[in-house]
């Protein structure tokens, strides 16, 4: 039982990294400046590395012989448990960077705490991810400030990105039985414990950027339970195409 729970937990963290990495990979070759293009690819690669470790871990704990690829390419929308936030489309660079910042602020709160997990594999992955997230959040925060403070156009675009994505941030802190049970055992980090850290990171950056969260925007959740937005199906149709078209082939 503990293994099924850990599998589910590793899977949701892996799905977050996998889907966000995929979104960032859509930028490569199309970035606003060469240096930024290379930086986006670095973040995408970090996240992909995290996803592979987490999916492999999930597959092992699940004990049904599924490896990273079976999990990444063999599930449909209902079985993906990533946050709705990470599957949202790239939009413009402001939307991409705002999504990244809201996620990075969560990641940088999560990973150092999870690196103290009593599950050694998760703790190891978290320790590696913590260093990557620490850099990511500095970079995405710097862009949020640049855009908020830069020109009228960049400010408006950044605010529009924040308005669009803010409702998806609430899901980060939504606890369910998987996390509650594992948190009790010292294996997972309870999402509710992250809210304060997340706010302490996000608040000052938005303030420096001159951006304000939308009032009364509500909260959109469901990703952890497989209730996704329309965007994920299209993402998977593209991402999984080869494995669907050539089942069982080796690449």
């Amino acid at each position: 039982m503990a293994d099924a729970l850990t599998a589910a937990y590793a899977l949701r963290l892996g799905d977050d990294a996998l889907i966000l990495s995929h979104r960032l990979s859509e930028w490569v070759g199309h970035g606003p400046e060469l240096e930024e293009d290379i930086a986006l690819a670095n973040t995408a690669l970090d996240l992909l590395g995290q996803a592979r470790l987490l999916l492999a871990c999930a597959g092992e704990r699940e004990g049904r012989g599924r490896d990273e690829d079976a999990l990444a390419y063999g599930r449909d929308v209902l079985d993906f448990s990533n946050l709705l936030l990470v599957e949202q489309p790239n939009g413009d660079f402001a939307q991409t960077m705002m999504r990244q910042f809201l996620f990075d602020a969560y990641a940088v709160a999560l990973w150092p705490r999870l690196s103290a997990s009593r599950d050694e594999v998760l703790a190891g992955i978290a320790g590696k991810a913590a260093k990557e997230a620490a850099y990511h959040v500095e970079q995405s925060a710097a862009w949020v400030v640049r855009m908020g403070d830069g020109t009228e156009e960049s400010h408006d675009r950044a605010q529009a990105g924040l308005d669009l994505l803010w409702p998806y941030a609430g899901e980060i802190f939504e606890a369910d039985e998987v996390e509650a049970a594992l948190a009790e055992k010292g294996i997972a980090v309870a999402p509710s414990a992250l809210r304060e850290h997340w706010q302490a990171r996000v608040g000052p950056v938005l303030e420096e950027a001159g951006l304000a969260p939308p009032e009364g925007a509500g909260v959109r959740t469901g990703g952890r339970q497989g209730r996704h937005s329309e965007h994920l199906g299209h993402l998977l149709a593209e991402f999984q195409f080869m494995q669907r078209a050539y089942p069982g082939a080796r690449w």
Partner: peptide, 20 residues
């Protein structure tokens, strides 16, 4: 060398470009 808007950005992009 590389292009960046400010020194902080230059340092970060140097890390991204030249220490991969």
């Amino acid at each position: 060398s590389l292009h960046a808007a400010d020194p902080e950005m230059a340092l970060a992009r140097a890390r991204d470009v030249y220490t991969r």
